[in-house]
Design a protein around this nucleic acid. Structure first.
Length: 427
RNA sequence: GUGGACGUAGCUCAGCUGGUAGAGUCCCGGAUUGUGAUUCCGGCUGUCGCGGGUUCGAGUCCCGUCGUCCACCCCA
């Protein structure tokens, strides 16, 4: 309750009780990505500020007001990464990974954005991130979307739906943007304050406005989908055809634009109605121009990021429970000589029975308390070692989770008896 | 950055119209001195977020402040 010792606002501890759910998500995605041929890589949490400005865009909210930026010297400005794509793209360039190569990569870790914390939105949050570099066609777009659909199935998550749009190429978007600006300028009198500000920087985001008063103007605005260049249209039709053939449902959303400037052509967003206002759980798209823009050789690319905290929340809402594994044998100790002998005995059992989880009572406690801990540990079997047993060269084995008789076993035979006993108790 | 709600034992919370704090849970001990989860008995823990004000007296009223949550905004 002390206020002088507090965590930084928006930065949460992930306590031990939460970790089984996190680990389940990590294990499911790690397996899935490997099945689709993606390889893990890791990039730094800190990059030069300039990288994010160039990649994400000067006029985005992220760059304008959400970055954790600090300077180490007068000419070195560094930033805690607000997303992963820029770092991956930079790494591909600086490590010489491109040269026409096709790379399927994934990474994960903490991201930082200085926003007001809210349900599903934190200042340090975690993303799992996929990037496919060097693939120009819609086939990879479709494949990574199919992969996410499979991921929801494996996680048992059903309250998500896929929104899809195409932003066209940078050039076609420029033409469209001019028309859009002209349209909104004609209706400048009904624009709200935010929208007027965006008119100069990123007019496409006006389309995203949730302000009810704006909906009439927005619905009359020219549609991006009607201004796509032929190649982008063909790309998008290829994508939707492949999704349809794979029975992946999607909703076309011509208003779907992204908050990051680097996207082109395909953009998609998995949204949920189960998390309150922060409804995006997994989203991304194509960024064919980014690597060139950062100084690398022209390389088409597509990727997405998903929010770990949000997905864990969805997993828990399905009613599934995630528990840390219980020990299999809890060792109860009675007497000081038994206490001194217990470690060596259990170490020997660990040598003989690798893979079996023993928890030896530590921290004292009387017999009753030790059995209470044994019970709460969830262990199916208790091993009792007292001074009396030690003297006679035996130990007691007592089933904890179901009816069964306690048996006395010579110490030398424990390793031979425990596996079968556990099997009968768990089967 | 803007708005609303809330901040009482480790945890979940109760404290009506102001009279100097309680329950459950957890933890510890006991109920045949070596056997748990049920039951019974006993015990421990609180600067009632912080600071100031009103009052004979404030957890309860007022102001400020910090924090949490939710929403706007934006996004994962």
């Amino acid at each position: 309750m002390s206020t002088q010792l507090a965590a930084v606002r928006g930065m949460n501890d992930v306590l031990a009780g939460q970790m089984p759910a996190w680990q389940h998500l990590e294990q499911v995605t790690r397996t899935l990505f490997a099945e689709y041929g993606f390889q893990e890589m890791r990039v730094p949490i800190v990059e030069h500020t300039q990288l994010f400005k160039r990649a994400i865009g000067e006029f985005t909210d992220i760059v304008e007001k959400e970055m954790y930026t600090f300077s180490m010297s007068a000419d070195e400005s560094l930033t805690l990464r607000p997303e992963a794509t820029a770092g991956i793209a930079r790494a591909a360039i600086t490590n010489g990974l491109l040269r026409g190569a096709r790379l399927k990569l994934w990474t994960s870790g903490p991201m930082f954005r200085h926003e007001r914390p809210q349900k599903g939105r934190y200042r340090q949050f975690h993303q799992i991130d996929i990037e496919a570099l060097g693939f120009p066609g819609p086939d990879v777009d479709a494949e990574i979307i199919a992969m996410t659909a499979r991921m929801w199935r494996r996680l048992g998550i059903t309250r998500v739906k896929l929104k899809l749009n195409s932003l066209g190429t940078t050039e076609s978007r420029r033409v469209y943007r001019e028309k859009l600006v002209a349209y909104f300028q004609q209706h400048a009198d009904v624009l709200d304050e935010d929208s007027r500000r965006r008119l100069g920087g990123n007019p496409l985001r006006i389309l995203d406005s949730k302000n009810p008063a704006m909906q009439a103007v927005i619905s009359g605005a020219p549609l991006l989908t009607e201004h796509l260049d032929p190649e982008s249209r063909e790309h998008f039709e290829g994508l939707t055809a492949m999704l349809a053939a794979s029975n992946i449902d999607y909703v076309l959303d011509p208003r779907l634009v992204r908050g990051l400037d680097y996207y082109s052509r395909t953009v998609f967003e998995w949204v949920t109605d189960a998390l309150g206002a922060q409804d995006a759980v997994c989203s991304g798209g194509r960024y064919d121009g980014l690597i060139t823009q950062l100084g690398g050789e022209a390389t088409p690319a597509v990727g997405f990021a998903m929010g770990v905290e949000r997905i864990v929340e969805l997993m828990q809402q399905t009613g599934a429970t995630f528990a840390a594994p219980s020990p299999q044998v809890y060792v109860v100790i009675a007497g000081s000589r038994a206490g001194r002998a217990a470690l060596a005995l259990v170490e020997r059992l660990r040598d003989e029975l690798p893979g079996i989880a023993f928890e030896t009572n530590a921290g004292g406690g009387n017999f009753k308390a030790q059995f209470r801990r044994a019970d709460r540990s969830g262990a199916p079997l208790a091993l009792v070692l007292g001074d009396d047993e030690l003297e006679r060269g035996v130990a007691q084995l007592k089933p904890m989770r179901q009816e069964g008789v306690q048996i006395e076993v010579p110490l030398a035979e424990l390793a031979g008896r425990i596996p079968a006993l556990l099997k009968s108790l768990q089967g």
